[in-house]
Design a protein around this nucleic acid. Structure first.
Lengths: 200, 200
DNA sequence: ATTACAAGAATGAATGGTCATTCATGTTTT
DNA sequence: AAAACATGAATGACCATTCATTCTTGTAAT
C-alpha cells in the first residue's frame, strides 16, 4: 500500500475516533483499529497522538478556508458574500460530521498550542466575516455603527452553535438552505442600513 | 473546618483547575493543592473525578438559570426580555471566567452522561430564549416567519462565541453593556416586524 | 524466469510513566 | 474515648510509545 494512502487513512480514522470519543479518551489503538493498521504504524506517519490532532486540523480545515475564500472572490455584493460564507460553513460542517465535532469540541481545549493554532487559523477564518462587513460599511450597505469584530463573532457563533447541535442531538433537522435563509434574514435585516433592500 | 465549607472550597478549586488545564489534563492532586486539602479528602466529598465535574455544573450553572428566570418573570416586553437574557448571560460569563471556560469547553465533551446532563439543562436554558421569541410572535412584535428553535441557537451562539473569546484571547475588550447593545441592535432589528419600534 | 538480497514498511508485544483511587494511620471534635 | 474527619503514601490500571522482529517490494545477477 502506498504511503500517502496510509497517511490519509489514519487521518480520517483519527477524525472519526476523536469525534466519537474525544481526544483524551481516544486510544491510539482505537485509531489503529479504525484505520486497519498496527499501533506502531501510526508512529511511522505521526510523531505522537497530539500531532495527529494537529494534522487533522491542518489538512481538513485548510481545505474549507481555501474553498470559501475562492468562492468569495467571485462575488462582491457584501450581502451575497455573507450568504456564501454561511452556506459554505454549514455545508462543510454538515458534510463531515466527524470533523465538525472535532473542530467544535477539541479545538476548544485550552492547550496553548491549539490555542495558537486556532488564533492563526480560525481568527483568519472569522476575520473573513469582519472583512465582508467592513466592505459593506464602506459601500453604505451595512450600518456604520456595527462593530465588525463583534458582528463577526455573533455571526460565526450563530452558525457554529447551530451546526454544533446537529451533531449533539437528535432534534428535527432543518436543511442547510432553510437555516441559511433564516440566519441571513435575521442578520441582514439586523445590520443593513435599509433592511428592505434585498441583494440583486 | 465545617464540611460545607470544604465541599464548596473543592468545587471552586476544581472550577479553577478544570478551566486552566481542562478536565482530562487536570490532576486530582492539582485540585487538592488548589483547595488546600489532601488528595484523599476529595474522595470524602465526591465519588470520583467525573463527579466533581458534574457537581461544578449542577451547583454553579443552576444558580445562573435560576437567577435569569427570576429576573425574566418581572418583565413581559419580549424585547426587554431578550435584553435581560443577553445581559445576564454575559454578566455571568464575565463574572466567573473559570466557570465560563469549563462550561464552554468541558461541557462540549462528547461523553454520554454530560450530553444528557446538558440536554436536560442547557436546552432548558436556551429554551428560555425560544419561549421569549414565541411570546413576542404571539403579541405581534416578532416576525412570525422566524423559527424560534433556530433563532434561539443563533442568539445563544452569538452570545456564547463572544464570551468564549473573552477567555481565549487577549483582544480588546468591549464592555458587557456595549456588547449587549450591539447584539440586541442586530437581533432586534433582525427579528422584529417593524424594526423601527423600540421597547417602551 | 528464477533466485538472492537489501531496504523500507509494518507489526504488536513489552515497557514505563502517569495518575485516579484506596486505605492504614493520624488528628480533631464531641 | 468514640466518632468523625483528614491525610498522603502505596497500589494498580491504563495506554502512549518503543523496538525487535517479520513481511513486502524492488533490483540485479544468473
Amino acid at each position: 500500500m502506498k504511503a500517502e494512502n496510509k497517511h490519509s487513512k489514519i487521518i480520517s480514522a483519527a477524525t472519526k475516533v476523536f469525534a466519537k470519543k474525544g481526544f483524551f479518551t481516544a486510544r491510539i489503538s482505537d485509531i489503529a483499529k479504525e484505520a486497519k493498521v498496527a499501533d506502531g504504524t501510526i508512529y511511522l506517519y505521526f510523531n505522537n497522538k497530539y500531532d495527529i490532532l494537529l494534522s487533522v486540523f491542518e489538512e481538513e480545515v485548510g481545505k474549507i478556508v481555501e474553498n470559501t475564500e475562492k468562492l468569495l472572490s467571485l462575488e462582491d455584493d457584501p450581502r451575497k458574500q455573507l450568504e456564501i460564507f454561511a452556506i459554505q460553513h454549514l455545508l462543510a460542517m454538515k458534510k463531515n460530521r466527524h470533523l465538525a465535532e472535532v473542530i467544535q469540541i477539541e479545538l476548544r481545549q485550552t492547550h496553548k498550542i491549539i490555542k495558537e493554532y486556532r488564533d492563526n487559523n480560525f481568527s483568519n477564518y472569522t476575520g473573513i466575516i469582519a472583512e465582508i462587513i467592513r466592505n459593506g460599511q464602506k459601500s453604505g450597505i451595512y450600518r456604520s455603527d456595527i462593530k465588525p469584530d463583534l458582528a463577526k463573532r455573533a455571526f460565526f457563533g450563530a452558525l457554529d452553535e447551530i451546526s454544533r447541535v446537529w451533531n449533539a442531538s437528535l432534534e428535527t433537522n432543518y436543511s442547510v438552505k432553510e437555516i441559511a435563509t433564516q440566519i441571513l434574514s435575521i442578520f441582514l435585516a439586523g445590520i443593513q442600513v435599509d433592511p428592505s433592500n434585498l441583494p440583486e
